[in-house]
Design a protein around this nucleic acid. Structure first.
Lengths: 151, 151
DNA sequence: TCCTAATTAGGAACTAATCCTATTTACAAC
DNA sequence: GTTGTAAATAGGATTAGTTCCTAATTAGGA
């Protein structure tokens, strides 16, 4: 539980606003799932969220949780972390590098940046542990997708 | 095909060296899989690699490809990009932030950094498309895991 | 209170990745 | 070159995570 009562209240309000605006139902399941995600700072995986949700509402289906998470993400109420464990794309470029990823087509480009490689990490982080590397992931829209959108 | 002939040659040599050093076999399958990964800069997913491998060696099993990729990764010949799309951890922190991830235990911490949020992206990248966000992922070892290793 | 489109539960299906095991093979020792 | 053996393979089975399907339920406006 990392967020303040005020912040939690605020988030709940955003949630209800969005439902009203889109004509979607604020079901008890959705509210509860949202609360579970909003009340932690542990970046949980879906199975952890499902388990926590079921502590209070044991019959909620996995599908409902996944659907709700997708709904929350689509509406900017939560984010998915991307570059954590358990990945699936490979890169034989062994030079230290970073990535630009097109959010439309998913293509990824390598780039090099001395300033990022030598970036002075905030004390806030060095207090958490030893930092071994910094990898930057830039998100945006590639030229090809821009052209396609413009048509 | 992004790498030069020389670089490819060099990588192949590293590969054979590592096999010899570890007493592992340089099978035709391994060599071929390594070549396929080393010869692209498209950050392919495993299924793409499997398909490309099978263009030349149709009977190679998925298991062999996955095992070989893990082997190459363990020995630093390739890197995995963490799931750029389709990830599985969630975060309700909507402030612009970055992550410190412990490579031992997988725990993740949010942190804030104005200098990263306003980082001037290299022209190299702005030529590729429109950049919308920069997310930094720091890898290292958290205090708890350091303590556990020290014992 | 009623109506209806949205939502749900829960099991089936799908997909990516790994495991299992009998067979094959690289390669070191002779 | 032969041989012996541990390592590696193919390919089917299995597992885990996620999404799909459908009949039943429900939120919320009229």
């Amino acid at each position: 539980m990392a967020v303040s009562k005020d912040e939690a209240q605020q988030r709940l309000k955003s949630f209800l606003d969005i439902c009203r605006r889109l004509g979607l139902k604020a079901t008890p399941q959705r509210l509860h799932i949202f609360r579970v995600v909003a009340e932690t700072d542990e970046h949980p995986e879906a199975d952890v969220i499902i388990a926590k949700v079921r502590e209070v509402m044991p019959t909620v289906s996995a599908d409902t949780v996944y659907r709700t998470l997708a709904f929350l993400e689509d509406n900017g109420l939560i984010q998915k972390l991307s570059r954590l464990h358990g990945c699936a794309r490979y890169d034989a470029n062994l030079r230290k590098h970073h990535h630009f990823v097109c959010v439309k087509c998913g293509a990824a480009w390598d780039f090099y940046c001395e300033k990022l490689d030598t970036f002075a990490v905030p004390d806030e982080v060095t207090n958490l542990g030893t930092v071994e590397s910094l990898h930057a992931e830039l998100h945006g829209i590639c030229k090809a997708c821009q052209a396609a959108l413009g048509e």
